[in-house]
Design a protein around this nucleic acid. Structure first.
Lengths: 107, 107
DNA sequence: GGACTATATTCCGAAACGGTGTTACAGTAT
DNA sequence: ATACTGTAACACCGTTTCGGAATATAGTCC
């Protein structure tokens, strides 16, 4: 793992290090959506939603399809959720650790 | 995936969204290290290395072991590298896409 | 006790980032 | 052409974050 490679990896992690972008990806998991639909579902402003979608697109997390006046975005793959699953696994482990500590300390 | 859960997930991705911290984790993959050793290997200042290690520790990515004057840090698990592997897979896919586009455009 | 070392913490300046308002750019419809 | 709509680009501001210097803490050794 060279430092240069790690920078590229970090750049991609950074894209997922934002609740707003995760909400977008989570919404797109269900179905393809236009920018306006993403705005509604995620409660983001127009400029914001557009910027986040561009970033996700530039890093290959979502794909674009222009249809008349609308632009449809869709997930580019399921990688994202494999990543989230690992993180959620970590969260679950933390939670059970806390529970264990709590039980031990109160016994 | 509730928004609250996504915030926690984002917080953890953010920890990995920094080249310096990835370099630290990558170094610790080889062996347990003191802060000073991490400083040498990663070319980070003392305050910086300490701070990054604390963050990684607070989120459960590394574990601490105090021994006299020294503090040894070690990886808490291999999750991190499963995550990096997925990202690297994405990078490889991007690279092959670029190569394909290049070949097609020059034919 | 005091000197010394490894690590942690605090403070500060610079840079990056997210959110928002505004403007510019398509594309459609009339 | 004009009016209108969806999306993108730009500019601004507040916040966060990184890195480094200085300072504080903890542990060792004399």
């Amino acid at each position: 793992m060279t430092p240069e490679l790690l920078e590229l990896v970090a750049e991609r992690f950074k894209a997922l290090a934002e609740p707003a972008r995760l909400r977008i990806l989570n919404a797109l998991r269900e179905r393809e959506m236009t920018v306006s639909e993403v705005m509604e579902v995620t409660d983001l402003g127009q400029a914001n939603a557009s910027k986040h979608l561009q970033l996700l697109h530039s890093l290959g997390f979502v794909e674009r399809r222009k249809e008349g006046l609308y632009v449809h975005y869709r997930l580019a793959g399921e990688d994202v959720f494999r990543l989230c699953d690992v993180m959620c696994g970590r969260l679950a482990a933390e939670a059970s650790d806390r529970r264990r500590l709590f039980v031990e300390s109160s016994s």
